[in-house]
Amino acid sequence: MRPLRSLAAVAAVTAAVALAPTTSATAGTDHHGRPPAVPTQPTKGPCAYTPMEDTTYSTFVGLPKDPRHTPDRGSLGVTLKTNHGDIPLVLDRAAAPCTVQSFAFLTRAKYFDDTICHRLTSYTTPPAALSVLQCGDPLGTGYGDPGYSFKDELDSAKALQNWPGFPDGSRKVYPRGTLAMANAGPDTNGSQFFLVYRDSRLRPDYTVFGHVTEKGMKVLDAIAAGGIDPGTDGTPEDGMPALRTEIERARLSGHHGR
Score class of each variant (00 low, 15 high):
R2F: 13
P3L: 13
L4F: 15
R5D: 15
R5G: 14
R5T: 14
S6Q: 15
L7F: 08
A9C: 14
V10E: 13
A12H: 14
T14I: 10
T14N: 08
A16Q: 11
A27F: 15
A27Y: 15
G33C: 10
R34Y: 15
A37R: 13
A37E: 09
V38L: 11
T40W: 00
P42V: 06
G45M: 02
Y49E: 09
T50K: 08
D54E: 10
T55R: 12
S58M: 05
F60S: 08
G62I: 08
T70L: 14
P71T: 13
P71F: 07
D72F: 06
R73F: 11
S75G: 10
L80Y: 01
L80K: 01
P88M: 07
V90M: 11
L91Q: 07
D92Y: 11
D92F: 12
R93I: 13
R93G: 10
A94D: 10
A96D: 03
A96E: 04
P97H: 02
T99H: 04
T99F: 02
T99E: 00
Q101H: 11
S102H: 05
F105G: 01
T107D: 03
R108N: 02
R108I: 00
D113A: 02
D114T: 12
C117N: 00
H118F: 15
H118K: 06
L120Y: 08
S122Y: 06
T124P: 03
A129V: 00
A129H: 00
V132H: 03
L133P: 02
Q134Y: 00
G136M: 09
D137W: 11
L139G: 15
G140N: 10
Y143N: 14
G144I: 11
D145T: 10
G147L: 04
G147K: 01
G147E: 05
G147R: 04
Y148P: 02
Y148W: 05
Y148I: 00
Y148K: 02
F150H: 01
L154M: 02
L160R: 04
Q161M: 07
N162E: 06
S170Y: 01
R171P: 02
K172M: 01
G177R: 01
A180Y: 01
A180W: 02
M181A: 03
A182S: 07
N183F: 03
A184F: 03
S191L: 07
Q192K: 05
Q192R: 04
F193C: 07
F194R: 00
Y197I: 05
R198G: 04
S200I: 02
S200A: 09
L202D: 11
P204W: 03
P204L: 06
T207L: 06
V208C: 11
G210K: 08
H211A: 14
K215P: 10
M217C: 08
V219F: 15
A224Y: 13
D229A: 09
P236T: 05
D238I: 07
G239R: 01
P241W: 05
P241G: 09
R244A: 13
T245K: 08
E246F: 15
R251S: 11
H256Y: 09
